[in-house]
Design a protein around this nucleic acid. Structure first.
Length: 646
DNA sequence: GTTTCGGTTCTTTTT
DNA sequence: GAACCGAAAC
């Protein structure tokens, strides 16, 4: 496709073409699963550029880094004749990009630190400890953080939410608030923002500084938003401001696939778009190219009864094939056995392992099948719970970078010192305070004072860091994050890892991969700025991914969103597991879980297997009988085929 | 007083 | 895995 040669009529269907060539002004595109949503967005960008819009004046917003990369790459290919490139990235990414230039307007310094989940967790933990609230029944940092995060992303006060959530517990809401206040103060003192702060401050910046808003409004003549159904109120307000009333805003989404309400997403943002933007146009994409009609039939049926949605029915274009298969199984072991058998049979039919996926509600549901796959030597890839950049060893080796970049980064300081022998939390805090709550390793005076305070057992470890620090300016290490990590690993962490971890080799390989990855960044600051907003390496960077061998993928349904496979297995279709009892109990509804089930079904192109085990082993060795998932029970049995198992 | 070690328990979903 | 707890070691 060479720029001017895009044949819109030939390359798009009627529905897509209408959306792509929509006139200026607000546009809502309801794009059901597998109807070419990404294609539509990309062609819209191309179309705008062809009509004379400078790509730099186009803003493309997504939720995940992966979607951002995919779209920006494809859009840039399509408009390759143009010199400039569209702006784009995740909401967090864009907020960060803007805040880096204007954070001072909100009382931060522009070199603020971004706290990832792990950092935020330890900060909340410290706050809880300092307030002497740490006892058995006090909520864990993760629980508190999810509450605070939910409050931030729904613009509701913590107080009311806390009262609600801890209603039938002895927990004092005042204590929850005290920790919250302490956490907020602490972040300010550290000049740090967590993920929610990025969005909240991004919005505040535009609300409080109309001059800045105006500047960016002029910059972004056209705004496009992907997965609009997953926006929270902060994100949608931010988009409203950037676009302005009647602005050139095109949002794409599918209310059927809204699955992030637990982190504040509000699918009413998409439902109310027509009212919020009077005169907006709406386009619907319902022609599905992905799945066979049998799978679409089930998808349509499973979601139809949900309340509050834009009703739509997926239209099939593919030829009739096999019905989805319902496999009734004894327990998790039989389930694993069944899947392995089917995978082998399908391979014999000509499918590749990488064309199949095993989906489940929660990570721990995949335990048994993982064991079975490993035992039988079948290759698999799992997108696990812990993200690449949040693994202990990766965080360990980046602490030094953080401290060089921001000498006031207390979290980094404490993590670094805790790696050394005979230094735990208490000692680290003591030394930090003695240094004046700041540790600029580039200053020789700081280094010698630190050296004096280190316990004898930690001397050797300290010397390794001292050496890197004294070389820092001489060798311009600020411009070489990989070199710093490399030196740190060679002179200290390699030995530490071997002493600490059973699987040290694998972890050291990860570190090599990390060093390799840093080469694309010119400075430590540039690297750190990106790293906090990244999740896992293989989703981001093509050099690492791509060449993975043919393997079966295991994934949560959430992580599978937007992807497709020829064959899909869904595990543990039992009430309490899918739908998750926790979700149903907390919200009192199962509509979102049903949407999640819809997402799972619509990932499948050719074949779909729903596994229903009858019982599950409990931790104490007993057996639990399971009720088949309501999502299966409410479907017409004619929509599926019973599997003969063994 | 602190740190370390060993055993135990628990895992929703993500930027 | 990794967070947690209690007990032993420094």
């Amino acid at each position: 496709m060479q720029g001017e040669g895009i044949q819109y009529e030939r390359e798009l269907n009627e529905e897509q073409l209408a959306a792509v060539t929509a006139p200026d002004g607000p546009v809502l595109v309801i794009a059901a699963a597998g109807t070419g949503k990404t294609r539509t967005l990309i062609y819209r960008v191309a179309w705008l550029v062809e009509r004379g819009i400078d790509p730099r004046n186009i803003l493309l917003l997504t939720f995940t880094n992966k979607a951002a990369h995919e779209m920006l790459d494809r859009a840039r290919d399509l408009v390759s004749h143009s010199v400039s490139k569209p702006w784009g990235g995740t909401f967090h990414h864009m907020a960060n990009r803007i805040l880096r230039r204007h954070a001072e307007a909100l009382g931060y310094k522009n070199d603020y630190t971004i706290l990832d989940q792990d950092d935020a967790r330890s900060l909340v933990k410290t706050c809880t400890q300092e307030l002497r609230l740490k006892d058995k029944h006090f909520p864990k940092p993760d629980v508190l953080l999810s509450l605070y995060g939910y409050a931030a992303s729904t613009e509701r006060p913590v107080e009311g939410l806390a009262a609600q959530r801890f209603e039938h517990t002895p927990i004092d809401v005042d204590d929850i608030l005290k920790v919250h206040t302490a956490y907020e103060q602490r972040k300010r003192r550290l000049n740090a923002m967590d993920f929610d702060d990025l969005l909240v401050n991004g919005l505040r910046l535009f609300q409080n500084h109309p001059d800045l808003l105006e500047q960016y409004r002029q910059r972004f003549v056209h705004t496009l938003v992907d997965e609009y159904q997953d926006t929270n109120i902060i994100q949608s307000s931010w988009v409203d401001l950037i676009a302005g009333p009647g602005g050139n805003l095109l949002v794409v989404g599918d209310d059927f696939q809204s699955i992030y309400s637990w982190r504040g997403a509000n699918f009413r943002n998409i439902l109310s778009f027509p009212e919020r933007y009077p005169g907006s146009r709406m386009y619907k994409l319902v022609t599905n190219y992905r799945s066979v009609p049998e799978i679409l039939g089930m998808a349509n049926a499973c979601i139809a009864g949900n309340p509050e949605q834009f009703q739509k029915t997926l239209k099939a274009v593919r030829e009739s094939y096999r019905k989805p298969i319902l496999a009734q199984l004894r327990d998790g072991r039989e389930q694993a056995g069944f899947i392995l058998d089917r995978v082998r049979a399908l391979c014999a039919e000509g499918y590749r392992m990488s064309e199949m996926v095993v989906l489940y509600r929660s990570h721990f549901h995949a335990l048994e099948i993982q064991l079975e796959l490993a035992q039988q030597g079948m290759p698999y890839i799992i997108t696990s719970g812990v993200r690449f950049f949040e693994q202990a060893h990766i965080k360990d080796v980046t602490t030094l970078l953080r401290l060089f970049s921001n000498p006031g980064d207390e979290l980094a300081f404490q993590r670094l010192l805790s790696l050394w022998p005979r230094i735990g939390q208490k000692t680290a805090v003591k030394i930090w305070n003695a240094l004046g709550r700041r540790c600029d390793l580039r200053k020789e005076a700081t280094r010698s004072r630190l050296g004096e305070m280190i316990p004898a057992a930690a001397r050797e470890a300290w010397n390794a860091v001292d050496l890197i620090a004294s070389d820092f300016d001489k060798h311009e290490l600020a411009n070489d994050p990989g070199e710093v990590v490399h030196r740190f690993t060679k002179t200290f962490y390699e030995v530490y890892a071997k002493e600490t971890y059973e699987n040290a080799d694998r972890r050291l390989e990860d570190i090599d991969e990390l060093i390799n990855y840093t080469s694309r960044f010119e400075t430590i600051d540039a690297f750190l700025n990106e790293v906090a907003l990244m999740t896992n390496l293989d989703a981001e960077a093509d050099p690492m991914a791509g060449d993975t061998d043919d393997a079966l993928r295991l994934s949560t349904v959430h992580q599978a969103k937007g992807l497709e496979w020829k064959v899909v297995f869904v595990l543990w279709m039992a009430d309490g597991m899918f739908p998750s009892s926790r979700s149903v109990n907390e919200t009192g509804e199962d509509a979102e879980e049903r949407r999640l089930f819809y997402v799972a079904i619509t990932r499948a192109k050719d074949e779909l297997y729903l596994c229903v085990p009858r019982m599950r082993r409990t931790r104490d060795g007993g057996m639990n009988f399971l009720t088949p998932s309501r999502f299966i029970a409410e479907l017409d049995p004619k929509l599926m085929e019973q599997a003969r198992v063994f």
